[in-house]
Amino acid sequence: MASKHPVISDKEAEHITRAEELAYELRIQEVMTEDVFCLEPEMKMETALDIFQKEHFSGAPVVKDGHLLGILSIEDLIRALRENNMDVAVQEYMTTNLVTVRKLDPVVEALKTFSQTNFGRLPVMDENGTLVGIITKGDISNGLLRALQRDYHAEELIRYRASHLFEDIVSGRTSLILRYDIRKGDFTHGGNASSNIKRALLRLGATPQVARRCGIAVYEAEMNLIIHTTHGGTLRVEIEPHKITMEAYDDGPGIEDVDQAMRPGYSTATNEVREMGFGAGMGLVNIKRCVDEMRLISSLERGTNLYMIIYLNDDDTNPKTIQ
């Protein structure tokens, strides 16, 4: 179907940059210079030159009783200097052929006007036709850069909230569950599951601190499964937007005295295990330091369940930080 107005296809739209989009999103009043210095029409050109030189102006609006009469630019001053006519009033040389923009228009309107005219600055008017500011190409570049930077920070925030995935999926309660089978005595792969868990958390947007705390807790738990169980066990990590629940469970042999097992330095590990740098009786103590909640349930019949929880987002529920 033929159309007079070309329709932008999705493919072409891909090439529209964020800066171009922003030129449509941002309003002129967000990037313009407010509190503009104004000249009076009766002011001498000589005086205007002094002010321009002192303040490094390259142009200024000329206003009388709140009404915009014209713009005096450096070019106008040069003309007056050439004609050796600096004693006359500003209104003799100012540009009165005014092109203005409205403060609520998108920035792209100002860009269009700049490309259609030779003006270096445009007066910005409010709904009542009162001068509220001046916009230059420099104002626009600065405004776009500021907006892009804001975008960038907002993006960073989102990544850190561990919620990309969870925001996209709507349910009563969304969680992601990772499971790893840990074999008894498999020292060669010891820590492999924990490394993968830590990496997964970082990819999901967890902060390095949270990923590190989870990693340490789950690593100690993983080594415990390798060292102490009869047949190995399972690591299960449930990730929710507000908390991470880690669980290590096995089917035996169980811990005879849980209180004793929790005591720092208490260990039943063999020399072989100690040679691996573990089995010093600090594992459970370390875990407790890293997590917000820990529960150890064990019986000689059913084996051991270790629950570890780290809360996210809310600072008051998250008092522990491991440096």
């Binding site: 010891g190 820590g191 490394s195 830590k198 690593y219 740098g277």
Partner: peptide, 11 residues
């Protein structure tokens, strides 16, 4: 042993 590198990774 490899645990040292895994520890490094975690910590």
């Amino acid at each position: 042993n490899p645990q040292v590198v895994r520890t490094a990774l975690i910590a």
